[in-house]
Amino acid sequence: MIVEVTALIELKNLSKTFNQGTENEVVALKNINITINDGDIFGIIGLSGAGKSTLVRCINYLEVPTGGSVVFDGIDLGAISEKELLATRRHMSMIFQNFNLLSQQTAIKNVCFPMEISGVPKAEAKKRATELLTLVGLGDKLDFYPAQLSGGQKQRVAIARALTTNPRVLLCDEVTSALDPNTTRSILELLQTINKTMGVTIIMITHEMKVIEQICNKVAVLDHSEIVEMGNVKDIFLAPKSKIARELILPKSEGVDSIGDGGIYLRLVFDGTTAFEPVISNLALECRAAVNILAANTKNIEGKAYGQMVLQLPTDQSVVERIENYLDKKGIVYKEEDSYVE
């Protein structure tokens, strides 16, 4: 079976400069080229100020780019009328960090809102809103006002609202940044389900690697208005090339001291091909070597190990060789690092 992959969104040489031609000129985006395929969960990661929010707002033309083009489903958004643009936006819903619900309206009224503005009959809108709120797990909270809901519940209302128009794509702008870790996980699971069952393409803007790691298949790393790295999440996760990607991906060493100065730093990457076993203690036993764990961020998913670990090895070259042979034998990917500085 051939799976046909079609481009849903193409950003071509996209640029955005605010206050162009004035002394307050700010370049927000420079020559962005991204192709997002139908069905992708595409992550765009960067630190604050990198241009992520501007980028996502250019995709639905809330911000009009100053250069290049946005092609959505074959339509160049810069070449159509205002009226056509408003109609096209109904196929690309957006959810936000701060939910942006109407505070004076109930959950169901909020979900009905996009249908109200696109002229769906009231009874039909109400029926669909009820279905969608039930789908996101809020079937019993239809008449609650946003102030009566928790952050996670508000985001669920926003997701239900975003789905009313049967969008092709969901633009997610830092949608988990205001939520606690457990709620973040459940919202990401919901988005993943929506992607799988309804075939909605998702674009995730975030500054958190764990969001990318949990649900994205592709990622673009944005730094100082430019894409510095882009590809499959797995590839970039294993071998981040740009400085910023390394900063975002490599685990942080917090409150860990190394065994004196010097030594060799080894970064181990667990990509799910090795079993989740006590690697370090086995390594220490078998190689008769003391190693220092500087940082670790690993998890066990269905018995397989995922994540990273940074070790500091003794300076003795023969010990290092023994350890590397051991890792080769176990099929664990590693990379020698000159230093381990965050």
């Binding site: 809330l62 096209t88 690309m92 942006n100 619900l101 809102f113």
Partner: peptide
């Protein structure tokens, strides 16, 4: 809240809809 207006814009609401269904409702 400007975010609510932005949300309405992202849904394809026109100026009239934003005034009567968002601004006046939220500012009531």
């Amino acid at each position: 809240d400007y975010g609510v207006i932005e949300a309405a814009r992202s849904m394809g609401a026109n100026a009239k809809q934003i005034i009567f269904k968002v601004l006046l409702v939220e500012a009531k």
